[in-house]
Nucleic acid binder design. Sequence first.
DNA 1: CCTAACCATTTGATCGTTCAAATGACACCC
DNA 2: GGGTGTCATTTGAACGATCAAATGGTTAGG
Lengths: 340, 340
Amino acid sequence: MPEPGPHGARVTIHDVARAAGVSRQTVSNAVNNPERVHPDTLERVRSAIDDLGYHPSSSAQSLRSRRSGAIGLELHTLGTHNATIAPVLTALSVRAAPHGCHLVPFGSASGAPMLEGYRTMWAGRLVDAFLLADTHHGDPRPPWLEAQGIPYASFGRVWDDPTFTRWVDVDGAAGTRAAVEHCVAQGYRTIGFLGWPEGSVVGDDRLAGWRAACEEHGAGVGPVGRAVQDLDAALAAAVPLVASLSRRDAVVCASDVLALGVHEACVRAGLEPGRDLGIVGFDGSETADMHHITSVAQPYEAVAEEALRLVRAAMRGEDAPASGSLLTPVLSPDRSTTTP
Amino acid sequence: MPEPGPHGARVTIHDVARAAGVSRQTVSNAVNNPERVHPDTLERVRSAIDDLGYHPSSSAQSLRSRRSGAIGLELHTLGTHNATIAPVLTALSVRAAPHGCHLVPFGSASGAPMLEGYRTMWAGRLVDAFLLADTHHGDPRPPWLEAQGIPYASFGRVWDDPTFTRWVDVDGAAGTRAAVEHCVAQGYRTIGFLGWPEGSVVGDDRLAGWRAACEEHGAGVGPVGRAVQDLDAALAAAVPLVASLSRRDAVVCASDVLALGVHEACVRAGLEPGRDLGIVGFDGSETADMHHITSVAQPYEAVAEEALRLVRAAMRGEDAPASGSLLTPVLSPDRSTTTP
DNA sequence: CCTAACCATTTGATCGTTCAAATGACACCC
DNA sequence: GGGTGTCATTTGAACGATCAAATGGTTAGG
């Protein structure tokens, strides 16, 4: 294997040029704009590149082109952020390379000002753009990024600015709708819902999809329960909900944790999930998988791909799309709705 | 706020030099080696830096210094890798900045950890070093990295090479030992163990800690069950295990999923976790937290810090430490061992 | 035949920083 | 006064690539 010199000296574009008997620029063209180079020359340059094992230095490219090719992504330990973002991050990491870029996760030390991490990442142009997660009402990041002219895209709508369209989100209503349709197809009768307390935009969206689908299928709108994202609360809310339902009814839930609560309430009531009561969760998490609960799975791969597309378009200064990207989640059936 | 020009022109070291009436190099020194600069000059340069809002370009620094300051970390979707690595990754992201470096996660397209990703990351010197996770017997990465002279450190021992000491790992035996001691202190009598099938190095280590602690405390070595990392298997193995135990006995488990299996077997046997049977899991995962199961928590923050220290030492070409770093996990008590 | 147009390739400059060596200033000491 | 040091600062030269403009050679058009 042709290795760089013993001193760890890198093979530069210069070395290739000398070996192929052409100039630096021709080598550069052979790599970046092959159509500008005569086929014979191209062949010669390419074999020189292979022989010497040349790879362009990304530092040099960054300096000259004024682009680092990196995308910043903030990580933190609050709430369920970690579990939500981890699969997306993995998908992003896999797909970044084909897009010619890479990710740089960074964390805000607890107590530090919200924007501090973004500011330092951007200051040295360590990144060309940012991906936002966990956007919420009153989020200071979008207006700040906008004011600085920093390109960015977002997981989840940017609630304060309806004109911003560089976001990817999962169509919660379509997810619960699919859940209801699946339940109907499996022969469950009345379909209830266990959601979060009113006021959560995501939660209300998922509830709306369930209600609309119930009405459409004439299955009758079942009872609704509410609980925060916590197993104890879910169980407490699920007990009366399950009691109010009959055999072969079902419950669609706003999350897998809530679904697990229903699952447990079901077992405690002496019923078998799936056979006696259908249960559908939301997110396709490890939890749902472990307990064999049918769940509406987040399309992580598609989300990652779309996010990369959006942020790269922003980096290139392209026009924003006409509207945000609502991706449809896919139901992944398990025993909690398929046991006969 | 002093902004760069309207054309987005960056403030360079040159601009600062002109504003402060000194040369480029003096500015560079003022930033990187303040002791080389006369206090008065330093003050003048610093205020010029603040006035103009200068921040050194990381691309230019990388090119000149031949160091990117980035550390590569492979992510993939196999097994429980994601849940295990996510909290570490978050901790690493937070702590990287103070260390003057940043992470670059990358994914292998195929899914299996192969060398391709490492090769391309290294080829363009996008990263200076790597952090390995999920090392196993016959892992091709350590010998390859070693042969290429690429600096790296590892989460988990490098099994094939006992002379390699740049690793951080969690002391599983110390964790289960702490679990047993906690159980004894809480007044549980016989303490059983539910582990993975024999042959897993990590699993055997955790079992050894449990056994040693049992013998020391004269509590008598309780029964042992085995199951793969899966809730159904755990439950199946837990049922006979629980049946063989008496009231106020306890079970220490090699993982939280196994512990959840014991939890469920316990409930099905009409017993209340904590009051009738102590249960301790391992990893401090969301699962344990959700079900209020006492668990031996991975010291993620310490692991991340130590990993950064090791990999940076490797980058600087420092001598490897005399031995690897075994960190002690901390038991986090919950209802499954504290209900009176 | 002369000019324009085109093609493949080369040359010089530049990106923003840091390294290595040179400079000038001042104090010290025989 | 001339050598020897030390200190603060400056100068020139990289680092490795790409951009923009220039080069020489060939072909087509009037």
